[in-house]
Write a protein that binds this DNA or RNA. Structure first.
Length: 331
DNA sequence: CGCGTTTGACCGGCGC
DNA sequence: GCGCCGGTCAAACGCG
């Protein structure tokens, strides 16, 4: 665990090296480079992103409590498992909107100014994403995989049907290690040079049979110490590695995607939230999926919460610097 | 030998 | 229509 902090998103302006990213990311860095971050457990979720590249909807959320609670989980999945959904009416909704109209949240990355760090989660969802989510849930996954497999041999099957994109979840971490250990086994299937970035982007796929979860890993061109990991899809199996006897993942809803299927926030709201961070005390993110129900609730500081425990034990300080816990940097 | 990585080619979407 | 670009495939290769 390392120091972390939310980086206030700068005003929406232009694109950046990560503008190729389907969604937005908030900065996450760890203040203590050594030892290198080599586990997702060391990362701090930070924000939620949404949408695919087209209907890219995204939004930042205050994840202070996520960070805090997450600190007690053996893994991100544990964390989700330990944080059942609470309430659903207050949840903010990310509404898909053209990525071009969105502020380039990647700008956030352009401000690695804060020495302290944080990890950030981004997730994406849109209609297609939701559809994809439904597909997974209904077992159409194999079909899609098959489609992928034969994509090269057979020509386009459904030309007019856009390829559906799984909901995505992105982390940003400050790490010397590109490929973070998140408890699952990944097989690298591709690597591409990233435009405007000296660092390549690596593509990984979950090696478990039938599991179509993918993830991309790349470094920020602005700050080579920042690693952006984007998860796509849902695991349909428990984590093969279950540190500290973690519960593993339920088969019907285990991926990040599930968590993001309902992250829909109107662009305007997103813009607001993008600058709210810790100043926005209540943002619950929920999902319609009951088995996998991460709820990011930040409306209050519970003295008996794991977050408080962390705080009391001085752990929180490592996660969220005092400056970030106080006043959000607006604009 | 099995598994993972590397890498060039290919495909499809999208903007101009 | 063309070119760019992100994403994927799959053969070759490396490693334990």
């Amino acid at each position: 665990m390392a120091n972390s902090s939310f980086i206030t998103p700068p005003p929406a302006t232009t694109t950046s090296d990560i503008d190729q990213m389907p969604s937005a990311y908030a900065l996450s860095t760890t203040a203590t480079p050594p030892p290198p971050l080599n586990s997702i457990f060391d990362m701090m979720p930070c924000d939620i992103i949404g949408g695919d590249q087209k209907a890219g909807s995204l939004g930042f959320i205050d994840l202070l409590d996520i960070n805090q609670d997450f600190g007690t989980a053996a893994s991100l999945f544990d964390w989700f498992a330990q944080n059942p959904i609470v309430g659903s009416q207050q949840q903010q909704t990310f509404v898909p909107s053209p990525a071009s109209t969105l502020p380039e949240t990647s700008e956030v990355l352009n401000n690695p100014a804060t020495p302290n760090s944080s990890a950030s989660i981004s997730s994406s969802s849109n209609e297609a994403g939701n559809d994809a989510f439904q597909q997974v849930k209904t077992g159409d996954q194999e079909e899609e995989q098959d489609h992928d497999k034969t994509k090269k041999q057979l020509k386009p099957k459904k030309k007019n049907q856009k390829r559906q994109r799984e909901p995505r979840f992105a982390f940003m971490t400050k790490s010397e290690v590109d490929h973070l250990d998140d408890g699952f086994r990944w097989r690298k299937y591709g690597q591409k040079a990233v435009k405007n970035s000296p660092y390549p982007r690596s593509y990984y796929r979950c090696t478990s049979a039938g599991c179509g979860v993918k993830k991309r890993v790349e470094r920020s061109s602005d700050d080579s110490s920042i690693v952006v990991t984007t998860y796509e899809g849902q695991h349909i199996h428990p984590s093969p590695i279950t540190p500290r006897g973690s519960i593993g993942i339920l088969t019907d809803s285990t991926g990040f995607g599930a968590a993001t299927s309902s992250f829909v926030i109107p662009e305007t709201q997103y813009q607001q939230h993008a600058y709210m961070y810790s100043s926005s005390p209540s943002l619950n993110i929920t999902t319609s999926n009951t088995s996998f129900s991460p709820t990011f609730s930040f409306h209050q500081r519970r003295s008996d919460s794991p977050a408080s425990l962390l705080r009391d034990h001085g752990l929180l300080q490592d996660i969220v610097p005092s400056q970030m816990r106080k006043e959000p940097k607006e604009e």
